[in-house]
Amino acid sequence: MSQQVAVADKIVRHRVGHHWPNAELEFSGAKLGFWIFLCTEILMFGGLFVAYTYFRSLYPETFHEAHKTLSIPLGTLNTGVLILSSFTVVMAIRSAMVNQRKAMLGYLYATLFLAGAFMFVKLAFEWPHKFHMGTLPAAFYTYDGLSHVPKPHIFYGLYFVMTGLHGIHVLIGMGLITWLIIQGHKGVFYKGYFTPLEIVGLYWHFVDLVWIYLFPLFYLAG
């Protein structure tokens, strides 16, 4: 159990958990644990990618025709936004490692803003357009522009499940970054302790990486 003790310079010194021999081992343990967690995340998305591959090979022309209904400019914009946010999160960790608390907080706010921008593009432009067009999973599918290919609803079913699950991960990430900002204001992170930053950073890169795969598979590949 980690306890925190406030000290005069407003840095809250981290205390190593009683069951860990030292801080290095505690840090490496946390990192190992999180890498393992990311493996499980990869396997979970892996299942979805298997489903995507299977149905793409089953209905290639459907996937080709349906992908044209997605907006490449908006997708590209969002890809850029996420890549930039991966950069800001790295800079936040670096700032903490050299005890620059203000810079660290600035980068964290920037990351939060970029994540919000990503969700805004998604929820304010991309999805409403699809709701309007009726390019939705089967239960709500009403679009009649793709009647020349078989089962177009499967493309949108997979699109909404995969980008939806990714979106949920972005929202969770925004929650985690908000928590980091609150902790950061309290002065918890400094060069002697930045494990949560490091771990959320890893998570955020992972979320970014999933999008890097989703973007070409849905928007670009025809």
Partner: peptide, 14 residues
């Protein structure tokens, strides 16, 4: 809930 279509044979799923 939404009819993704991948497991339901009626929707082209397997």
């Amino acid at each position: 809930l939404f009819g993704v279509g991948i497991f339901d044979p009626a929707l082209g799923g397997d």
